[in-house]
Design a protein around this nucleic acid. Sequence first.
RNA 1: GGAGAGAUGGCCGAGUGGUCGAAGGCGCGCGCCUGGAGAGCGCGUAAGCGCCAAAAGCGCUUCAUGGGUUCGAAUCCCAUUCUCUCCGCCA
Length: 423
Amino acid sequence: MLQIQLLRENPQEVIDRLKIKNFDATELVAEIRELDSENRNLKKKIDDNLMAQNQGAKKIGQLFKEGKRDEAEALKAEMATLKESERTDRAKLQEQEELLQSKMVLLPNLPNAAVKPGKGAEDNEIVYKQGDDSNLPEGALPHWELVKKYDIIDFELGTKITGAGFPVYKGKGARLQRALIDFFLDEATAAGFVEIQPPYMVNEDSAYGTGQLPDKEGQMYHCQVDNFYLIPTAEVPVTNIYRDVILKESDFPLKNCAYSACFRREAGSYGKDVRGLNRLHQFDKIEIVTIEHPDRSYETLEQMTNHGKMLLTKLGLPFRVLRLCGGDISFTSALTYDLEVYSKAQQKWLEVSSVSNFESYQANRLKLRYKDATGKTKLAHTLNGSALALPRVLAALLENNQTEKGIVIPEVLRPYTRFDIID
RNA sequence: GGAGAGAUGGCCGAGUGGUCGAAGGCGCGCGCCUGGAGAGCGCGUAAGCGCCAAAAGCGCUUCAUGGGUUCGAAUCCCAUUCUCUCCGCCA
């Protein structure tokens, strides 16, 4: 959520910058400003009323002590009137504040100046590219064929047990999955991210804190009996560690990493984009999260992106880095880099990481703040990224490393898999 | 799941209707003292919001959360959540 001060002081800037995200905020900003000023007036009225009541209450106490019963009773009657108007004003204020809040969450985060305008994915800038993206020889198989051939992932079995999009990993497939998790966590730890094992279900407050609620409710699995949500990413529980926290400047940067299973309903997806491991309802991911001082958050964004690049380099996978354009960047992000691996058999780029700086947008909802040198309380910046999402890494790895003898395991993973080849 | 006890500031802890944003202690910050440190002494130490161009200042809210009683609630009543103890169940 944006800070309301920004709309009070600089509404035009908000409108202009949101145009980059193809978002016309003109009307919404006007409505919000109107509501905000109404609410402040009302608040003032209520505060004054309360002051009168507080003073009256003190006076009544005194009058009773002095034995002036009649005066006290008269004043009591007055209080009743004040109370009555307080009641109506308060009800109105609450209603209007909810309305204001519901409008505020409709405003996306402002994009960073580096974000270029654009319609959608086709306008993203390729800022880096590495590795061999030539095609495989004749007869190369897509991963959904390979996993059958070597019996390492069973999609039909998952459908039987649960439903589509819940694959079952078997034998060397399961082991490879576990190896990747372990490898990614070790690398993140080496880079200074403190490992967290978070809950896989969160309450409403947490889902709201990171912005899954209220707008993306349909994307999450919901346990209605207990009103918990299955996490769509470890970002949700990990970032919520810092909900309602006031940090010291010396606490920065706070770096966490976490492995978790991720659950996404992804309603409405179909077709060949969702084939095999490309898109699942349950998948594994290692997430990195940084809470940073506003002055350093963009430096940190680069570092986090570099961490993802390093992982893909070590795995020997061809990849590219995109800086998302205004049309493709998420609602809550100020600047996002996507990392995509090249899947040779599908001849397709697959997103395996998305690294974003949310600046203070998320922190504002989370009430994640710090005290600066002068003792003022300010909003911190939050960043997160995948390091990395497993299924698509696995897909590319299987496809790109297939040989006549079998699937060759990258050198760096062998200490974890304790085998060199899937055959 | 059953029975009971409890929830107060960064922490511990007092407080059963007005003088309580809240004693006392710890911690923390600043100052004095010291060659330096410690001890000691003194002062200070929550957040949110509003008024104000801003600072100062003033006002409002907050003692788990939500409602209620009352002129007035940390204090009384109701509901919810959470924590602890005992019992049950359980990896």
